[in-house]
């Protein structure tokens, strides 16, 4: 049992140069993070905030300008570090000429599993991801939901301790979203740690133990969802039966009381508010 934290990031800085003018852009700056074993951690942030860059740094696809990343005590990018990682990409990057089962066999083999180990492991994964019914069909015949399940299967095939899920629910129908949420909960119950990104804030709110909000390469806030939400100096007032003129009057009255901002849009969840308040 490895007692080192599943993920430990210290003072991470990453830059990339724009090919057309060689200008260097900061993708991540002074980023620190430590995950606890068995938790689900969500990374929130608008497009271009550095979420995917962070995943690529953890996986070793990119090298940091400075700082360090350790996965269960192994430096990111090494084979040892990747043996602890399972990666579910935002878009499925698999050879399309393979069947679902072949994908699992291939990625299991790439992880160094013997054919004997693979046989047992594949059965477990097929059950966990509920892909038995279509496992023998070629990937190009799959729907988005089916592909996502294969993707989840390959990420789990070598029984990794830390899972990186990049937008796991994007593009899925409600059933697919439920299935993914269920799978993630099950994975957590097995003692695994999950780091994921998502735009579906309602899902994040019900699933994640902790969140961090990234904006323009910087971490703005991090903590347990409940704590963060309590810290918000905001309240939701639900009003019914008022005309638009009366609503405008309420808004003016709240402003008179000293409110810095008043939103009159229907509430879609407090995490969303939290997110908007940090990233607007």
């Amino acid at each position: 049992m490895n007692l080192s934290p599943p993920l430990e990031i210290q003072n991470l800085q990453a830059r990339y140069s724009l090919s057309w003018n060689r200008k260097s852009v900061v993708a991540l700056d002074c980023f620190n993070l430590e995950l606890k074993a068995g938790e689900i951690f969500a990374l929130l942030g608008p497009n271009g905030s550095g979420k995917t860059t962070l995943f690529k740094l953890i996986l070793g696809f990119l090298k940091p300008k400075q700082g360090s990343i350790f996965i269960h005590g192994e430096r990111a990018g090494t084979r040892g570090a990747r043996s602890y990682l399972g990666y579910l990409p935002e878009n499925p990057y698999f050879p399309k000429y393979l069947t679902g089962r072949e994908i699992l066999e291939t990625y299991g083999g790439l992880s160094g599993l013997s054919p004997h180990q693979l046989r047992d492991r594949i059965e477990i994964i097929l059950e966990l991801t509920q892909m038995s019914s279509f496992a023998e069909k070629a990937l190009h015949t799959y729907s988005k939901g089916m592909i996502q399940r294969v993707s989840l299967g390959q990420a789990l095939i070598h029984d990794p301790q830390l899972l990186l899920f990049d937008e796991p629910m994007t593009g899925l129908d409600p059933q697919g979203v439920d299935g993914m949420r269920e799978a993630m909960t099950k994975i957590r119950s097995l003692g695994k740690t999950i780091l994921f990104t998502s735009h579906l804030l309602e899902q994040v709110e019900t699933l994640a133990d902790r969140v961090a909000i990234l904006y323009q390469g910087k971490k703005l806030v991090e903590g347990a969802i409940e704590t963060l939400l309590k810290e918000q100096k905001s309240a939701t007032i639900q009003v019914t039966g008022l005309s638009s003129e009366q609503l405008a009057g309420v808004k003016a009255a709240l402003t008179d009381f000293g409110a810095t901002s008043v939103e009159m849009t229907p509430s879609s969840g407090s995490l969303e508010k939290l997110f908007r308040s940090y990233t607007k």
């Binding site: 696809f61 084979r79 040892g80 990747r82 990666y87 990409p89 790439l110």
Partner: peptide, 14 residues
């Protein structure tokens, strides 16, 4: 180009 490399190199392979 098809980014299969990301899933391949995400595995513990040198």
């Amino acid at each position: 180009e098809q980014k299969t490399i990301f899933t391949i190199l995400a595995k513990p392979i040198d």
